[in-house]
Amino acid sequence: MFEKIREKYLLNKTQIIEIDTLGNILNSDNRIFNLSGVGQIYDFHPFFYSIESLLSLKNCEQIFYCIHIEHLNVQKSVDVFFTNTESENPILILYDFTEHYTNFQHIAQEKNETVLNFHLEELKTKLLQAEKEFKNKFMANVGHDLKTPLGASLWFINMLEKTELTNSQREAVLLLKETNTLIKGLIDDILDLSKLELGKISLDENWENLSDIIKHIQSIITPKSNQNGLQFTVEFEQNQLPQFIYTDKVRLQQILINLLDNSIKFTRKGYVKLSVKNIEKQKDTAQLLFEVEDTGIGMKITNKNDIYNSFTKLHNQKNIEGSGLGLSIVSNLITLMQGDIHYVTQLNQGTTFSILLPFKTK
């Protein structure tokens, strides 16, 4: 049985060649390569010149690994074993490891490609980070440069309002003031975003009355919603919520007002709603869920994270202005406050943003 197995699986994988000390081929079983008619081993393949110095030695054995040989259209990768200890003449034994070396080469190539791809991705990440830092530093510098002349312009407009103006002049001044206010808001957004992405904004946390925060937001949003013919409601179960939370009041209000402004901007009819719920309350901490819901135009998106990219607009409404910075600022602030933001949206039905934030309470 062993002889049959050896004959089937091993004999055709090895070849024995007998040569003399001059390199003449005396005998070969031709299991791998047909050496009929080949006079010298050097005529078989130039590699065998490397064993010429071994032919005259006594009791010598040496092995050569992964030698690629092509002869009479047969290509093989073999290990070559030289010995002159078993007979009068030197013996060469060829071991066919073509499949082994081919597989090894594929594995090595895949490994090299994996390493190269890893380093390529690492370089891409560093390049993107460098570009992002440059962009943010550029925006911050431009923003600061614009704030000085803009502040002077607003001061001049305020002074102009105090003079005697005709109705048409007053309308022009009002339009100029509104335009400057919009530009100021855009510059403030650019500065906030650049500082957030550069990690240069820290939270100014204090004990704040949660009810006062919501009332302040309500006082800002209600006139805006009324002006757009929308119903604005607040769901605030005071007996289920902590009275005081430890937070950065300005940033929390910025998050909620930004989302509510967006809802008003993209809602033509119906309502905008802010709700606050206590999801998990312990002795000194709470997880509060803030939800901003509207009956607006909704969004058609392919990637749910696209809306948090800066300067991204996911609508083609030409009559709706915006820089595309608001949600990026919101997302970065929520991350800074160790919270989470999610949303559900349906085209022409509306959108609901859910923000979960942890707070110390008392």
Rank of each mutant, 00 (worst) to 15 (best):
Q105I: 08
W207M: 09
K177R: 13
I183A: 11
N12S: 14
N24I: 08
D204Q: 10
T233N: 15
I190E: 15
N59M: 04
W155Y: 06
P46I: 12
M1Y: 05
N228F: 06
D294A: 14
K13I: 02
L259P: 00
I63D: 08
N112K: 07
F232L: 03
Q240R: 06
Q109W: 05
F244C: 11
N303W: 09
I214A: 09
L54W: 02
N112M: 10
L26Q: 06
I5L: 10
D294I: 09
D188H: 14
P223A: 09
I320N: 10
G185L: 11
E99D: 15
A130W: 11
T163N: 10
I307Y: 02
L10E: 13
G326Q: 08
V38H: 00
D96N: 12
T181P: 02
D189M: 06
K269A: 15
E291P: 00
K147H: 13
L289T: 00
Q218K: 10
F236K: 02
T98A: 08
Y343C: 03
Q254A: 15
N316R: 08
E61R: 12
V330M: 03
F64W: 09
N27G: 06
N89V: 05
D20T: 02
V234P: 00
G23K: 07
Y95A: 13
V115M: 07
Y49S: 14
H216V: 07
I301K: 01
F353L: 04
K76D: 01
E293D: 13
K13R: 11
M299E: 08
I187F: 10
K265N: 04
H342G: 05
R268F: 10
L55N: 03
Y9L: 14
R170K: 11
D261L: 12
E208V: 12
D96Y: 02
V292I: 13
M139I: 01
K111H: 14
N309A: 12
N262T: 04
Q40D: 15
S323M: 09
I264T: 01
I63T: 15
T14S: 15
I16Q: 02
L356Q: 04
